[in-house]
Design a protein around this nucleic acid. Structure first.
Lengths: 337, 337
DNA sequence: AGGGTTGATGTAAGCGTTTACATATGCCTA
DNA sequence: TAGGCATATGTAAACGCTTACATCAACCCT
């Protein structure tokens, strides 16, 4: 609770000298520094970072606005972002929005009011147009795991098209030809991209994705359940279904179990995300993993670069690639032949 | 980026009046307020919360130090805490520590330097003695889901003894008599308490817990796997095992599957925590749920009370009760008789 | 010896607010 | 009409730092 003035008094120097001794040690005399150190220790002085921020107009803080904390998906990105920021001495002030556009806007504003030097936004609800407005108003926003064409250099994201391709190629490589998919909402570009990627990979193999085999879900497990049931009811032959999220895959697995279809013997199921959840499912889910922690960390680093106005941040990775984590929910059809 | 001085100039009043118009509207004239409002709108003025905090010496911020964000367990508490804090207009500045005592101490200090008015600590690594020191130094710390006898009124936590009892009583009610348990590390009071509770409930039914049937795990799934194997290998008869975490239960389920013991036909498995994970396991795991979001929210509210030095916070719930969430991993032995 | 460097420190003006205190105006009452 | 009291506003001093600028001493060079 001691102030810099008290330290200065104790050490018999001016506050400016104390400040310099602490912040730019090379410009102050060794003996003076010793006196200051002594005073600091004696008084248990710790600089008030808020005052420091006000005076130096740099809060060393960035805001994170995120849908929610209590899901592994967001949690991993949050973890990565905070880690990245912490590694450069920045603090993370976090706000959840419960998937509400008003919440996202309000959080963005109030974090700026707190003098956050940059904002990491995981915007689910805000439209591209609104994001453009925000970005115009204050150019210090970083989009985490979302791509926006107008400020691509402020986006850290997964290449979803490649992710979809990877899913398709993997299934193809295991001998699957009749492939179904349960997508996310078509209003999400992630969902569209993954579908596009899947289509492309099939097309490369001369296969067209049967429209009757694509069900639109919402990334959540109950829709995985519903869509899988629809797929089964359709009576179409299908050997594999690619779910655009692990949660939907979990629902799909439940549906299969209830209907007596065995996974992977009768139908193979491939997930997407690579959450811990996938590991705990039965059968253990083969899935396309997004490197969420890495994406979060990169977003943190990019936010730091933005905050410090460092012009060159070409060293920060912004586009990430998915990878398949092979477990036991996809059958290798080549084996049996 | 407008400052209060510019607003004052624009409105033709003093900065003090602008400040009052914004913060205590009832003491300023209606016409003046209108002028101020106009100026605020015209200039797009938004008060600098950092400066405001410095001047009024209240940052309206509390710090949360937590092990990590990327697990459902911590995520839920984090979600609750942030929600509680947000509901009273406070910001959450969060730091993860990766289960490291140094990290917890460093985070605690640096958050205080940032003028957090209270700290919510989920301390895993810090010992009771160290916590006592911290608390002595600054009495504005709240312990989230941890109990410390020396400052019980600053703790929000689950009644783990009752939780253990509940587990025992539930198993008993389903007709189980040979009960095994896989505990957390005995260095954790939670683990000891849950075990105590289990013992008590069995004792009430005239049963003594067989020491050979208690395995010490570490709350994580690999140890659940290992311990379950040991239990099976022991050759002892047991009809149910109570795992002190859902993760360990997941591991235990895996072990059973590998060894060909059916759950719940051959052995029943009861979890603890009530994470989403439990729902996705096969069979769906019956578990003793801790209300983690509620605990987090209460911690947030208590932190607020501490921050505002409100003397009476008897309305804030501090001790929470677990509840069993019934699913399909525990067999009802009464049925078959 | 005088002028120019260099290095170390002090002085004081911010940073953008809040707030105690002073001042001014109008109104009521005796 | 003077005194007292509200009410509304302004003045200026904080809050705890940083930092541009001024100052001063010591040293070096010609």
């Amino acid at each position: 609770m001691a102030t810099i003035a008290q330290v200065a008094l104790f050490a018999g120097v001016s506050t400016a000298t104390v400040s310099r001794a602490l912040n730019k040690p090379d410009v102050v005399d060794e003996k003076t520094k010793a006196k200051v150190r002594e005073a600091v220790d004696a008084l248990g002085y710790r600089p008030n970072q808020v005052a420091r921020g006000l005076a130096s107009r740099s809060s060393r803080t960035v805001g994170v606005v995120i849908n929610r904390f209590d899901s592994a998906y967001y949690g991993q990105m949050m973890q990565g972002a905070e880690k990245g920021l912490r590694s450069v001495g920045y603090k993370t002030i976090a706000e959840s929005t419960c998937e509400h556009a008003d919440g996202e806007r309000a959080a963005w504003n109030s974090l700026l009011d707190r003098q956050c030097e940059a904002i990491i936004l995981h915007a689910d609800a805000l439209s591209d147009d609104e994001l453009r407005e925000l970005y115009k108003a204050r150019r210090n926003t970083v989009l985490m795991n979302r791509y926006h064409p107008d400020f691509a250099d402020r986006c850290v994201y997964l290449d979803n098209i490649k992710g979809g391709q990877l899913a398709g190629e993997y299934l193809l490589s295991k001998g699957h030809r009749s492939i179904a998919t349960i997508t996310g909402p078509s209003s999400y570009y992630e969902a569209r991209d993954r579908l596009t990627g899947l289509r492309q990979s099939l097309a490369n193999a001369g296969i067209e994705l049967d429209p009757a085999l694509v069900e639109e879900g919402n990334f959540r497990d109950d829709m995985g359940f519903t869509c899988m049931n629809r797929l089964i009811d359709s009576g179409k032959t299908l050997s594999a279904v690619f779910c655009q999220s692990d949660e939907m895959a979990a629902g799909a697995l439940d549906a299969c179990r209830q209907r007596g279809v065995r996974v992977p013997e009768d139908i193979s199921v491939l997930g997407f995300d690579g959450l811990d959840l996938a590991y705990h499912l039965t059968p253990k889910l083969t899935t396309v993993r997004q490197p969420l922690r890495e994406i979060g960390e990169a977003a943190g680093l990019l936010a730091y670069a933005v905050a410090t106005k460092s012009t060159d941040h070409s060293d920060i990775k912004r586009i990430f690639a998915a990878e398949v984590v092979e477990r036991s929910s996809v059958r290798d059809l080549n084996d049996g032949s």
